[in-house]
Design a protein around this nucleic acid. Structure first.
Length: 380
DNA sequence: AACCCGGGGTA
DNA sequence: TACCCAGGGTT
């Protein structure tokens, strides 16, 4: 019936595909790294990270043997930091299970840390030419519209249905020798034409085959259940400066920003003041302390949490840093991988000529924060 | 199946 | 603002 869909997609892809650096190489390792970076992350964002990462960690072995802090620094700002931990776990699994070479097998790939159904299919098809579907968010949108699949795409059954549609496309004669390109063509079409809200159907290479377009309302698909509202949290951040050093602490191994370095912080409970929260944050890392005064406040939106970070200066009155916390000088702070949510604080510290003024008992220097932050980030 | 996990682009 | 993105892991 639609034997031309695959060939039309491939011809269009050959004509218009974006020039992405990982498309220039055939190294399975390089393709794998790019696919992990591309999880929930746009190609234009990934590009510079991938270039730097490949120079610094050019092979599975170097990734497997790298210090975790170096990996986190290379990942700084990309988010979902669990990805890079899993990447190293998988590199070590590849060393021990597969002699340092990525396995040319979807099931074996799927068994590696951080590789799920999508990434297994993507690497299998792009790096090894296997006929495996790579069903990402783009492909979900394109395929659900192409075949007017009207079920909830977050359900396992509908996902299987969509994968079956892709398998059928991969089996078409024109696609048999290039499954990776067909998968990429589906994703490319979703990224550039088959947009969530306003698809550019006029320029679509498979419009005449698209049941969604023929039905007149392609943008109503795909269907998914409504997501729960995003909760809000007030976060108290204790900034403890002593001389030319600032207290940093490693976050818990579970939950938000697991295992990342940061400044002592707690989520304020109902009725708890910023000052009380800051004392509690210090206690977590083994210090007694007293609040000096607020330094800055800014909103930060995660995908699963809206927050307001309230940064308050504190002074240690006793105790020693415990549990991975320590006082870092400027050089040590610069070397730490910090999540983007803490970037405004790093910026204040970087632009403050002398940290002593931040530790002053009175007359908190708000102009420093205002100058460093910009109007959007500074919230009262 | 539901929930959690960063960050950023875009309509 | 709301949505969603070359998703995966845990429970």
């Amino acid at each position: 019936m639609s034997a031309s869909v695959a060939s039309n997609l491939l011809a269009w892809f050959d004509r218009t595909q974006r020039d992405l650096p990982w498309r220039r190489c055939r190294d399975p390792y390089a393709i794998w790294v790019s696919e992990v970076m591309l999880q929930q992350t746009r190609a234009d964002t990934v590009r510079p990270y991938w270039e730097r990462f490949m120079k610094r960690f050019p092979s599975v072995r170097e990734l497997a043997e790298a210090p975790l802090d170096d990996l986190l620094k290379a990942w700084e700002g990309l988010g979902y930091y669990r990805r890079v931990r899993n990447l190293q776990t998988a590199a070590r699994q590849i060393m021990s299970r597969h002699g340092g070479q990525l396995p040319a097998d979807a099931s074996a790939l799927r068994a590696l840390a951080g590789i799920g159904p999508y990434t297994a299919g993507a690497v299998a098809s792009m790096a090894f030419g296997l006929a495996e579907p790579a069903l990402d968010g783009n492909a979900v949108r394109v395929v659900s519209r192409l075949y007017e699949v009207a079920g909830d795409v977050s359900s396992a059954g509908v996902r299987a249905e969509l994968e079956a549609k892709i398998r059928a496309l991969l089996a078409e004669k024109s696609a048999r020798s290039r499954p990776g390109d067909l998968n990429q063509a589906l994703m490319e079409l979703g990224a550039t034409h088959c947009a969530p809200q306003s698809p550019r159907c006029e320029a679509c290479p498979v419009r005449s085959e698209c049941r969604g377009w023929l039905g007149g309302e392609p943008a109503r698909l795909p269907l998914r259940r409504r997501k729960a509202p995003v909760p809000f949290a007030e976060i108290a951040v204790a900034l403890c400066v002593e001389g030319d050093r600032v207290l940093v602490a490693r976050r818990p191994e579970t939950g938000l920003l697991a295992g990342m370095m940061g400044f002592p912080a707690v989520v304020l409970q109902d009725g708890e003041s910023l000052e009380e929260g800051s004392v509690r944050a210090l206690a977590v890392v083994g210090l007694r302390g007293e609040p000096i005064g607020p330094l800055l406040s800014y909103p930060f939106v995660f995908s699963s949490l809206r927050s307001r970070h309230q940064v308050i200066l504190v002074r240690r009155s006793g105790g020693e840093p415990a549990g991975g916390a320590f006082f870092a000088d400027r050089q040590e702070l610069a070397a730490l991988a910090l999540p983007a949510a803490l970037a405004p604080i790093r910026q204040v510290l970087d632009s403050a000529g002398d940290w002593h003024v931040l530790a002053a008992p009175t007359g908190v220097t708000m102009p420093v924060a205002d100058a460093a932050l910009g109007s959007e980030a500074a919230v009262g």
